[in-house]
Simulated assay, not measured.
Amino acid sequence: MEIKYKLYPYPVLSSYSNDYGNGAFDVAIDIVRDGYDLRIDFLATLTCQSLQDCIKQGVAKYVYHLECAQTGFRTIVQTDKVSKVYTLLNKAVNGKLQICPFVVAVDDLKGFTSPDFHEDYQGIAFDIEAGCVMAVGKMVTVDISKDIDDLANTPSIFNISKNPDESCKQMLVDMSQRKIIIKLPISDFYSYKAMSATPLAQPILNSL
């Protein structure tokens, strides 16, 4: 999700509009490794008293939208605190992670107004429905590079076994079952077993 410059039917605090004459909303986002997972630290800075009051009254919250297009991961983190820690599972994301900060109404607001409105809106009150955006921060895009292979623990699609028929001198392949069954002649099977115990030989065996 990318934040688009858009117009709202009511004033919204953002860096790309002048709906508010005073006030700002920004979020510092820090991502650190926590074992295999990621710990995301959010620290919001909101300098609009009327929006702060909405959060204190429980009618608005800080909302962080997290999305990874490569894995299809999407979630939101809600809090009424300026600081928030969220643990993101390593398997959930890969590549670019987009984080969009908002202040969102979580309850209907009747007659909302603010002395920080631009002069064009002074003296005007707005009805804002639950779920509507009240402030927009700057989107952050983070490249998540993995140090571990997601496929490392994936079960093999092959089953390699010894052919009990000693007269058979070639490899037999059976693809009629859930796994591909590979039957090796007795001498080849024991050679395979000996090589598979050597880590340096495993990539060669896999390519073969």
Rank of each mutant, 00 (worst) to 15 (best):
S161P: 02
T79G: 05
D34H: 07
Y190G: 01
C132E: 14
N22V: 04
E166F: 13
C48R: 05
V82W: 09
Y192N: 03
S14E: 08
K110W: 00
S176Q: 14
S145F: 10
A201L: 13
V104N: 01
L51N: 03
C54A: 11
E166M: 13
F158P: 01
N206P: 00
A28I: 11
V140Q: 13
V12M: 06
L7M: 09
L66Y: 02
I3G: 04
Q122P: 07
S196G: 00
D147W: 10
I186G: 03
L43R: 14
K138A: 15
P101V: 01
A201W: 09
G131C: 01
D116Q: 07
Y86E: 03
H65T: 06
N94Q: 09
I124P: 12
L43H: 14
D26G: 12
Q170K: 12
A152I: 14
S196H: 05
D37T: 00
M175A: 13
S83H: 08
G23M: 02
Y62G: 00
Y36F: 08
Y20V: 06
L172Y: 03
A152D: 14
L200V: 07
D150R: 13
P185R: 02
G21P: 05
S145M: 12
I40E: 04
G58K: 02
D30L: 12
F73N: 05
D150I: 12
I181Q: 15
M175R: 15
L184Y: 01
N206Q: 10
T79I: 04
F158H: 05
E166P: 04
D19N: 13
N18W: 04
V85S: 09
A152K: 15
C54S: 07
L172Q: 15
L205F: 02
K6W: 03
Y190D: 03
T47P: 05
M175K: 14
L151C: 15
Y121M: 04
S17W: 04
T45W: 11
D150F: 13
F25A: 08
Y36G: 10
M171Y: 05
Q202H: 01
V93L: 07
G95W: 05
K61W: 03
Q170W: 10
G35L: 09
S167A: 13
I128D: 06
T45L: 15
V93Y: 00
D107N: 09
V136C: 02
I204S: 08
G35H: 05
S156V: 02
N90H: 07
G111N: 03
V59A: 00
L7A: 10
C54E: 08
V93N: 03
